[in-house]
Write a protein that binds this DNA or RNA. Sequence first.
DNA 1: CTAACCTTGACACATCTATGGTAAGGTTGG
DNA 2: CCAACCTTACCATAGATGTGTCAAGGTTAG
Lengths: 109, 109
Amino acid sequence: MPDLNVGAAAAETGWSARMLRYLEQHGLVTPPRSQAGYRAYGLPELNRLRSLRDLRRVFGIDPADLVFARRLRREPELRRAVDSWLAAGEDAGSWVEWEQRKHERLLVA
Amino acid sequence: MPDLNVGAAAAETGWSARMLRYLEQHGLVTPPRSQAGYRAYGLPELNRLRSLRDLRRVFGIDPADLVFARRLRREPELRRAVDSWLAAGEDAGSWVEWEQRKHERLLVA
DNA sequence: CTAACCTTGACACATCTATGGTAAGGTTGG
DNA sequence: CCAACCTTACCATAGATGTGTCAAGGTTAG
């Protein structure tokens, strides 16, 4: 099976040609180009498009989420910051939070 | 220092009272409530609000990003799916992709 | 009791996202 | 050479997000 142009790839994967260009613009699926500049979707890109569609259907995630998830894995500082921020929120009732709060507890009670 | 009401916490952290309620609505900073239902921001919440402000300033992330990052760490299936989808995209020029593409390469060339 | 808080809920609005369409022009295959 | 693709670059728009403000009513401190 040869590479597909944007229209054929759209028909094949259930996206619109417009969205294929949109996804490329955001770096999510970037097919190589023919010499004339035509997008050439091969097996890797087609699989990527299909699984992206599944991700959306199953988990309800949108392209912006993927873009952010990519930032998380490309920027270790961001990842660490976000991760520790979230971790601090999961410890409701933890020892640290209890220690931090007990003063106010006394004052409020 | 006793707990702060929403207005005082806003003044203290640089957010607006409106945004504090908004952040609570999305589960990002959820202070305990007084008996009358007043939000009571203690040290943990104030720190959380300040660091959230820093996260935004330094990395340009918005609340929606945090909400999604929280989904990533709470839903292992989602995390695995997103992670492997992204991993598949980072291997431009990898062996797997080269293997997958060489057929089309031949046909297109 | 009153002023100054707080509560929820609603309306408003700018901005961004996701998507479609359309126009002007290049490429390709019969 | 012509039909049917493709390209980029716009304009439009429905829905979501982020934020302010206001109204009707409860709470609290002096």
